[in-house]
Design a protein around this nucleic acid. Structure first.
Lengths: 191, 191, 191, 191
DNA sequence: CATGAATGAGGTTTCATTCAT
DNA sequence: AATGAATGAAACCTCATTCAT
């Protein structure tokens, strides 16, 4: 019961929690949320089924955990990004950064696009990702406004949608998709 | 046994099959494929659970039926589209046509994007939609080649992905999404 | 409605009934009674599912039909057999005849042994086959009595059981089972 | 967590597994494999339907469990039997032992003969029982060889088949079947 | 006699979640 | 915190049988 022990327990808990989250991410992403059983997550995390519920209240809560955990990994990127963009160079860096982020954790983003249009978890999804999406759009809108675009909001939305589309295509088609070439064209057209 | 009676029966059967397909489309699109039970489709079609299986061999076969049924509705559009594009005007018409098609049957396209990244039914999905997708890309690629684009294939893929992204955004966000404005900007940038 | 037409109808009916019976025998024998659906019998007989019920009242009635139909094919044999046996030569002929009968319609006898120990249809089975079995035993009992056997009834039962066992083994193992050799030994021991 | 508790749990689990196996044996044997529902097994074992699947992977796996469980009860007999037979006295003991074994667990052997000719589960059946059957035959073959029989293999197969036939008759007819008398005659003829 | 759509009970199996230990 | 047995609802699907045509 000494503070030290408590810390250790906390650490262990975090370690186990992390393990669960990573197992869940892997399975959700590979087999889909609906087709992943709590059982299989338990097995992969080497945690008992019952104990899973000491860490997460239920399957949906676990999904939320997975999404938050995934997002945290990109916190740094998002922080940097949250500054304004003024030059085309900065724009290009932001776009390329976006795809590096996706490439660096395909599993997470595959899950993201897997959930994108899932009515089952739409509320949760919206709750978590809407802020990010709106932040993105706002920054791009400002960028196009500064450039004198005739409809900055629509252009920003178009860009955001194009980024989604390209990411989705890349994640689904894998290396058949000539990602770098497509990015180059995208930057050319949208900068 | 008269031809008339047979025809009537055939019609009735088609009518019921159509009813089932439409119920299934609605439910799949609203609740997702995995979260729609055969039971609920039966109830909505006013058909007994067992009788469903006289029309479709199983749930996945029913999904295939729904997708084919949906696609057939756009046969005309696809046929027109399959000609080559030469002028910017033709390009614009094609793009606007694409979105009219989507707006004319949102349920179907919502289901489309719902299945897009579903591992569960990926094989079926790929089987059905890959031909269309490739045809699209090929036509756009030719268009950009004619225009002297430096990487026509990448540009065509970018366009295809952008169309996906915009459609997805529109279908998910509903009327919050300023579709027409976005389309205008898209045509401006990609024509 | 002329007698001629009626006869033709009767013939057609018999033809179709025969067809159904033979399809049913084949399927029951190959897949088992419980695992054969009325549907599959209908398809194989090229008769509609509904029409099946114009010929037989239900599945069990159809089974009864199959069994009676099969037995009728052996009527001649049974009639001959129903005379008494006096000499060892007659005994041998009877035994060999028994196995020729089995070899001449393996499907039927496979079904027979398939149903032998099926609680599901035991009543029907008993109803149909008990008379034959008892007749068999009675004749053999008389045979052994004439020979001065110390317990003719038990010997007759032993013989009957041995015949069952050999038939069963042969039908299950197929040509791996050296039927003729086994019959020779059986005749040697039991004559 | 003490060893004692674990053992108790293990014991309880075994007890429940045993309970399920025995319920299943009873029902399979009384109503046939195909006509016994998992539901009914669950009810009889006082276990929930779902929990059944914590003990056995499915219905066929449960059947396999039942067969193995039944066979294990005769392990001792089989072990003794696996020695060679030299004298007629040993032969007689073996035969009588065989029937004692059958009488001591009629349910199991009824199931055995129930499955004997069931196409549905033939593979499983063959997998489990073929070794025993072949061992039997081999030992009898050696016995007859030693006795100078003119076709020891056929005689051994005949004996094996006769044993099957007698067992089957006894199990189906119950006490109407004068088992002991028949056995006496069998020993007389085959020793 | 003939058709096959229709029914609805019942079958096996899966699964998120709970709870006694 | 940890276990995994236990639950029970719900899923997909099959099938003998009926019945309007």
């Amino acid at each position: 019961m000494s503070p030290r022990t408590e810390k250790q327990i906390e650490k262990l808990k975090q370690k186990k929690e992390k393990l669960i989250l990573e197992s869940a991410l892997l399975l959700f992403s590979e087999k889909g949320y609906g087709n992943t059983s709590m059982q299989s997550i338990a097995i992969r995390s080497k945690v008992s089924k019952g104990n899973l519920y000491n860490y997460f209240e239920g399957k949906e809560d676990l999904l939320e955990g997975v999404l938050m955990y995934g997002l945290n990994q990109f916190a740094e990127y998002f922080n940097e990004f949250s500054t304004e963009l003024f030059t085309e160079k900065e724009f290009e860096i932001a776009i390329r950064g976006n795809f590096e982020m996706i490439q660096s954790n395909k599993k997470f983003w595959k899950l993201y696009y897997n959930l994108f249009a899932q009515p089952e978890v739409q509320d949760l999804f919206t709750k978590i990702f809407t802020p990010f999406f709106e932040q993105y759009i706002a920054i791009f809108e400002m960028y196009y406004k500064n450039k004198g675009d005739n409809d900055p909001k629509a252009t920003a939305l178009l860009l955001g949608s194009a980024l989604d589309g390209v990411s989705l295509g890349y994640l689904l088609m894998g290396d058949t998709y000539p990602l770098n070439n497509v990015i180059n064209q995208l930057i050319e057209k949208f900068k």
